[in-house]
Amino acid sequence: MLEHQTHSPQRPTRAVVVGAGGFVGGAIAQQLRNDNVPMLGLTRRDVDLLQDSAAKALAGLLRADDAVVLVSAIAPARTAAALMQNLVMAGQLIAALAARPVAHLVYISSDAVYADAANPVTERSCRQPSTMHGMMHAARELMLKTEAKAPLAILRPSLLYGARDPHNGYGPNRFRRLAAKGEAISLFGDGEEQRDHVFIDDVARLVSLVLAHRSRGELNVATGQSASFHEVADLAVKLSGKSVEIHGTPRQNPITHRHFDITECLKAFPQFHYTPLREGLERAARESAGVPL
């Protein structure tokens, strides 16, 4: 549930994106530039949050009227070591904010914080992560809620896709790339699992809205329309215009689905509309091909 502190949107004095070099952070930084928001994008080259000196260095870059967007993470965090590193990074940011308080803080978390059984997922769903990655985000959320003094907004995206995603995980990104190369798409089972796939630009637009309203609270980033991996693969092949085989494989795990109830987003941002899956895949394909959007 988000609560807007400014009902009419106001451009932040400056937004600082911590982790602007990544897939998500880069998209957010680009969106803020498009929206003419004064923006400072920080990458690991600017401030390495794993270094002991990071808090001091970051504090030196911050101003009291800044809105900070924390995207930086070692993700996906699959090991205990990665979990601990991510917590260290969050700790450095919290120390920086203690030395230099800011006006607003936005944290990009993940829907992995929710229990697998949550259905449909809402912002009120039980947070009971079953993965190291989910536990990492849940722990970081708690750290920020407990120690950061600035109004805090937590955004929890579902599965993201977009042209610049460096990961080639099972789903829209991999399917689109395989289809573009004319290579076969292999599904787990018959790809029956339904997931909510979010186009990367939508996350960025929502962050911009959250900053403009100085919102605090929690918001899931999901379209509310889940699709099966088979449907996504079919769509990727269709959009590629190529003849690509889609084949199933023996199922190793039971079928699970994830759906979202996005009512809170409809209430928080009534004029915001998510990019439909087909349109998002088309835009990702055009961007990958270097075709102007």
Partner: peptide, 14 residues
């Protein structure tokens, strides 16, 4: 109850 209350809102947005 909370989810059903917003049935019309979701419908209008969809």
């Amino acid at each position: 109850s909370r989810i059903r209350r917003d049935w019309v809102l979701r419908l209008l947005h969809r």
